[in-house]
Amino acid sequence: MTKPATTVIDGAAKAIDAILDSLERDPTDPAAAAFRAALRRKGSEIAEAGDGITLQNVHELVCGIGEDRNERRAAHLDAAWADLPGWRL
């Protein structure tokens, strides 16, 4: 049985938030490459569960929008998701 898209998206958003927290603590940590790969996997899960709009919504959820946007978080996600179907830079 396939999980509902909202379940996958909610879980992925929480995981992405935790991964970004880890990257922000120390982007030079040897585990940083694994964190970036995990961001990519979560983005792929979201893309499979939804579409480009869903990726954008999750991006805004974990990075903020407008004046509340966290540019470092956005840059990490943009790099990880650069060539995912439905993602835009």
Rank of each mutant, 00 (worst) to 15 (best):
A47Y: 00
G66C: 09
P27K: 05
A15S: 14
G50V: 02
G43N: 00
L84V: 09
D29E: 04
A12P: 07
R73M: 07
G43V: 01
T28G: 07
D83Q: 11
D83W: 08
A37P: 02
V62R: 03
I9R: 13
W87T: 09
D21K: 11
T54E: 07
T54H: 05
P85N: 11
R36M: 05
L61A: 09
D21T: 11
A13V: 08
D10G: 15
R69W: 11
A37Y: 01
A12R: 09
R36V: 04
A5R: 13
R88E: 13
A37V: 01
L77T: 03
L61F: 06
A5P: 12
A12H: 07
P85W: 09
D51T: 00
G64H: 04
K42E: 04
S22F: 04
E71H: 14
P4C: 12
E67R: 14
T6I: 15
R88F: 10
R36S: 01
K42T: 00
D10P: 09
L77Y: 08
P4F: 12
D10H: 13
T28D: 10
A18S: 12
I46A: 01
G50P: 02
A18Q: 11
G86I: 08
H76C: 08
H76E: 13
V62T: 03
L39T: 01
I16L: 15
A74Y: 10
A38Q: 07
A13G: 07
L61N: 06
T6D: 15
W81R: 02
F35V: 00
D10F: 10
R73W: 11
W81E: 05
L55K: 05
D78F: 10
P4L: 15
T7W: 14
A13M: 12
F35K: 08
R88K: 15
T54K: 05
D78Y: 10
E48M: 05
L89W: 13
A34F: 11
A75V: 08
A80I: 03
K3Q: 15
